[in-house]
């Protein structure tokens, strides 16, 4: 279904909203914007909320973006403003980290090389190497979209022990991803 009216004319009609190129960039960038936001707020739900607000701004200001410049950086700048706006809004569910800490972290993330794609691929490979009970745990936690506490409840285990197992698995994954990235990553 790649239909289209904008076919042939890369310049979108200013009345009808952003064009295909913009949308492609936009969709491709979602993940990195989300990953930019997440460490700066306390919870996944907060991150989603900020992402939504950010998207609204991005889509309403699409005309201000100059094609050819760094789209991701542009989006992150917007996201950063949204993070701080969110902090003032008091919608957040948990106590936030200090502004100075958020600032430090944001700067640190902006320095990061843009290698989220490679990281994701490495992560995929690493997950496949986990033993199956750990994979199951990840599925319960992430695929089903429930909190660790609910997972604990389902499995009839104390929450703390589930947190611990999740922590261990994440740590194994972190180390595995690092190893893969440092060895060039292609050792399937």
């Amino acid at each position: 279904m790649v239909a289209d009216k904008s076919d042939g004319s890369p310049e979108p009609d200013s009345q009808s909203g952003p064009g295909e190129d913009f949308v492609r960039l936009f969709t491709q960038t979602q993940r990195s914007i989300y990953l930019f936001i997440l460490p700066l707020v306390r919870t996944a739900a907060d991150a989603e909320e900020v992402l939504q607000e950010t998207n609204v701004v991005i889509l309403s200001k699409w005309k201000q973006f100059e094609p050819g410049t760094n789209f991701t950086a542009w989006c992150k700048a917007i996201a950063r403003l949204e993070v701080f706006r969110f902090r003032r809004s008091r919608h957040h569910r948990l106590q936030l980290m200090g502004e100075d800490v958020v600032d430090l972290l944001a700067r640190k993330i902006e320095e990061q090389p843009v290698d989220q794609e490679r990281r994701r691929d490495a992560l995929t490979a690493c997950i496949s190497k986990l033993r199956s009970s750990d994979q199951e745990l990840l599925q319960r936690r992430y695929l089903a979209g429930v909190t660790g506490e609910e997972v604990a409840h389902q499995m009839g285990r104390p929450a703390n022990s589930v947190y611990q197992s999740l922590g261990r698995v994440r740590r194994v994954l972190l180390e595995c991803v690092r190893r893969r990235l440092s060895t060039g990553g292609v050792q399937q």
């Binding site: 989300y34 430090l104 990061q112 990281r119 994440r170």
Partner: peptide, 25 residues
């Protein structure tokens, strides 16, 4: 700082891929 970001982003990758997060919205 780097370690924290790395870990939270890993968590974020999983959240994202799991489809809880922003997908639907």
């Amino acid at each position: 700082q780097s370690l924290f970001i790395e870990m939270i982003q890993l968590h974020g990758q999983l959240l994202w891929s799991g489809g809880i997060s922003p997908g639907h919205q």
